[in-house]
Simulated assay, not measured.
Amino acid sequence: MRVYATVEEYAAYPGAPPATSQTPGLLLRASRMLERLVLRYCQYDVDPTGLPTHPLVVAALRDAVCAQAAWWDQVGDPSGADAVGWGSVAIGSVQLGRSVTAVTGEDAPARQLAPEVWDALADPALTPDIFRMGAVTTC
């Protein structure tokens, strides 16, 4: 599995909370999520392991992964499990409710891409000759 950011890079990312023992796993999960939702539709040069070769693309993917991991710290629950299931809950005078139609966590805020991910991948320095988002090709 490709991971586009190291713990050290995450620790240096502006606004990121301090790295913990959970950080390597979060970076792996963020990399996997970005590959599934975005990178599979992008075109850029890679090495034999599938990692980007151009320094600007390397930096953009690093920043996107760090942004996603930092987002999870802000919204919590990177699995999306908190968004599944319960209908209404009452504790004293406080009542909370939400639809019970959610059977997966995909609609949870933590399963959405962080706004900063798009900022990193839309950097004007990523010119079409080195990075193309939304590229669909046939062999």
Rank of each mutant, 00 (worst) to 15 (best):
T6G: 02
V7M: 07
E9K: 08
E9W: 08
Y10F: 15
Y10C: 02
P14F: 14
G15Y: 01
A16D: 06
A16C: 04
A16R: 04
P17R: 14
P17E: 12
P17I: 09
A19V: 02
T20H: 09
S21F: 11
Q22A: 14
T23H: 07
T23D: 04
P24T: 04
P24I: 03
R29N: 11
A30N: 00
A30H: 02
S31Q: 07
S31G: 08
M33D: 11
L34M: 09
E35C: 12
V38A: 09
L39G: 04
L39R: 03
R40I: 01
R40N: 14
R40E: 13
C42V: 02
Q43V: 11
D45T: 10
V46K: 15
V46R: 15
D47A: 03
P48F: 06
T49H: 12
T49D: 13
G50A: 10
G50C: 05
L51Q: 13
L51I: 02
P52M: 11
P52T: 10
T53Y: 11
T53V: 15
H54W: 07
P55N: 01
V57Q: 00
V57S: 01
A59G: 05
A59I: 05
A60S: 07
L61E: 00
R62Y: 11
R62A: 06
D63V: 00
V65L: 09
A67S: 10
Q68I: 10
A69Y: 04
A70T: 01
A70S: 08
W71H: 15
W71K: 08
W72R: 01
D73L: 04
Q74L: 12
Q74C: 05
P78H: 02
P78Q: 03
S79T: 15
A81L: 12
D82M: 08
D82P: 03
D82W: 12
A83K: 02
A83R: 07
V84E: 05
V84P: 00
G85W: 01
G85N: 02
W86N: 11
S88T: 15
S88G: 12
A90N: 11
I91T: 14
G92C: 07
G92S: 08
G92D: 07
S93G: 07
V94K: 13
V94T: 06
V94I: 12
Q95W: 10
Q95V: 14
L96W: 01
L96G: 01
G97M: 15
S99G: 12
A102W: 13
V103G: 10
T104G: 03
G105P: 01
G105E: 04
G105R: 02
G105S: 02
G105Q: 03
D107P: 05
A108T: 01
R111W: 08
R111S: 13
R111E: 10
Q112L: 07
L113M: 05
A114I: 00
P115T: 00
P115L: 05
E116A: 15
E116T: 06
E116G: 06
V117H: 04
W118A: 08
D119F: 09
D119M: 07
A120M: 07
L121N: 00
D123W: 14
D123C: 10
P124K: 09
P124G: 07
P124E: 13
A125S: 03
A125N: 08
L126K: 00
L126H: 00
P128G: 10
P128V: 03
P128Y: 11
I130D: 04
F131I: 01
R132T: 03
